[in-house]
């Protein structure tokens, strides 16, 4: 935890995070603009937004989605390609944040980009492997849930124990995700700073995770609490609707949304700083 507060060029790094955020924001704008034009073509002259401001109304949402024209989809092929690209950019930005979290001195942007590009293949392979591990772990957990229901549902006098077990397993699965996330971060640090190969770094990372389990658990707790707080604040702000439809309000909400997104990026950066390698 002390690592968070050691000698560090905070201001410069925050500026870099802001830059990364803006990069991601620019990349998402085309998706939003396409969505906006699609929505405009569907909604046309209906005034549903004003009616929603009076409060959430399932009739409005249902009628909207159940009457989408056949030739229009909110997830058309071009949008999916853009989202895919956006996801890859996110992975790259994530890796940049990991690199940045270990730098104590001001970095040249070009040198940061150069290092990331030099390691891009290894980092990509590592991400794919991390994804496979995540799927494998989730698969095991879900299989156990399905298995116990399939085997015991009609044999036990009550479903209580099964539901409690399923909730327990889901919680373990979520905790496992956090652990795998830490391992993924550690392994990326090993690739970036110790030139470890992409797959082997993952197994080294597992060892390191358990060797420094205390710091890692603190990081997980910090991450979970911080995310919860940001999410909670967003929901609270989102609920405060002024009872009118105007552009000022819509842009105001959009700004709140982006502040939350940026906050999560900062949370992520701090999380990476706590995780040792």
């Amino acid at each position: 935890m002390n690592k968070l507060f050691d000698k560090y060029n905070w201001f410069w790094n925050l500026k870099f995070i802001l830059l990364l955020y803006l990069l991601l924001y620019v990349l998402i704008i085309p998706v939003r603009l396409i969505w906006e034009s699609i929505l405009r073509s569907i909604i046309k002259q209906e005034f549903i937004y004003e009616r929603l401001i009076e409060g959430y109304n399932q009739d409005i949402i249902w009628d909207f989605f159940s009457n989408l024209p056949d030739n229009i989809s909110l997830l058309s092929k071009p949008i999916l390609i853009l989202i895919g690209f956006y996801l890859l950019s996110n992975v790259a930005v994530n890796t940049t944040l990991i690199y940045l979290s270990e730098q104590k001195r001001k970095q040249e942007i070009s040198s940061v980009i150069k290092i990331i590009i030099n390691n891009i293949l290894n980092l990509f392979m590592n991400s794919v492997f991390s994804l496979l591990m995540l799927i494998f772990w989730s698969g095991i957990c879900l299989y156990i849930i399905v298995f116990i229901f399939d085997q015991f549902f009609y044999k036990l006098p009550s479903e209580a124990i099964l539901i409690q077990s399923a909730i327990g397993i889901l919680l373990i699965m979520l905790f496992g995700w956090m652990v795998l996330m830490c391992i993924s971060v550690i392994s990326k640090k090993l690739i970036l700073f110790e030139n470890k190969p992409p797959i082997r770094s993952y197994f080294y990372a597992i060892r390191i995770f358990f060797l420094k389990i205390r710091s890692n658990l603190i990081a997980i707790v910090f991450f979970s609490v911080a995310h919860f707080v940001v999410f909670y604040i967003y929901l609270k702000i989102d609920k405060i609707y002024p009872h009118q439809a105007n552009l000022g309000f819509i842009y105001g909400t959009a700004i709140v949304q982006q502040v939350c997104t940026l906050s999560l990026l900062v949370v992520r950066y701090l999380f990476y700083r706590i995780i040792p390698h």
Binding site: E36, L39, K44, I48, Y49, A245, N246, L247
Partner: peptide, 11 residues
């Protein structure tokens, strides 16, 4: 043309 809905939803 109602821009509020398309803008609000897309955000």
């Amino acid at each position: 043309l109602s821009d509020y809905a398309s803008l609000g939803f897309s955000y």
